[in-house]
Amino acid sequence: MILSRIRNKMSDFSKNHRLLAQFILDNSKDVAFMTAAQLAQKIGVSESTVFRFATQLGFQGYPDLRSSIQDEMIESFTVTDREQAYTSTSEENDLLLKGFQIDAQAILEAAAKINRADLYEVADMIVHAESVYVAGERSSNALAHYLCFYLSWLLPHVHHLNPDYALEKMINLSPRTLVISITFHRCIRNVVETLALASRLGLPTVAITNGPSSPLAKKPRKF
Rank of each mutant, 00 (worst) to 15 (best):
E121S: 13
V158W: 02
S67M: 07
R200T: 14
A217E: 09
D94C: 14
K169D: 11
G58I: 05
F77G: 07
A112L: 05
I182T: 12
A117S: 08
H159I: 02
P215G: 10
Q56Y: 08
R186T: 13
M1D: 09
E137F: 09
R189N: 07
H159K: 12
Q38P: 01
V158A: 01
L57E: 04
D103C: 14
F13H: 00
F33M: 05
A111Q: 10
Q101R: 14
A54D: 05
D94N: 10
D124M: 08
V158C: 09
A142L: 15
N141L: 04
P175E: 09
D81Q: 13
L195V: 01
L151G: 00
T80N: 06
A85N: 15
H128P: 01
G44N: 07
E92T: 09
V191E: 02
A111I: 04
V134W: 04
Y146V: 01
L39A: 03
T209H: 12
S28N: 03
P215A: 12
L19E: 03
L57A: 05
S4Q: 14
Q56H: 09
R221Y: 15
I171W: 08
E193C: 00
L96G: 10
Q105P: 01
L108W: 07
S88F: 08
L3K: 11
K15V: 00
L143V: 03
M1Y: 15
K15T: 04
V134S: 04
A166T: 07
M10K: 06
Y120K: 10
A21V: 01
Y165E: 06
S181A: 10
F53H: 02
S88G: 14
E193F: 07
E47R: 08
S213L: 14
E92R: 03
E130K: 11
E137K: 14
A217Q: 03
I6C: 08
A117Y: 13
I74P: 02
R189G: 02
I171R: 15
Q70P: 00
S88P: 01
L155V: 04
A196S: 04
Y146W: 07
P163A: 13
Y62T: 02
K113L: 05
T80L: 15
I74N: 07
E137I: 12
M1W: 13
Q84T: 12
V179L: 13
S46F: 04
I114F: 11
V79N: 12
K169T: 11
S213V: 15
R82C: 14
I69R: 01
I74R: 07
E83Q: 14
E47F: 02
S68I: 03
S131W: 05
A37F: 01
R221C: 13
S181F: 04
I171K: 12
S152M: 03
A117E: 14
A196Y: 03
N27A: 05
A32E: 00
K219Q: 15
S48A: 07
S67N: 04
F33K: 06
G61H: 12
I180H: 01
G58R: 06
A135T: 03
D81L: 10
E121C: 08
G61C: 09
F149S: 09
C187H: 10
N8K: 05
Q101F: 11
S139K: 11
V79P: 00
H185W: 15
G44E: 05
T194R: 01
Q105N: 12
D30H: 03
K29Y: 08
I24P: 00
N210C: 11
N190V: 06
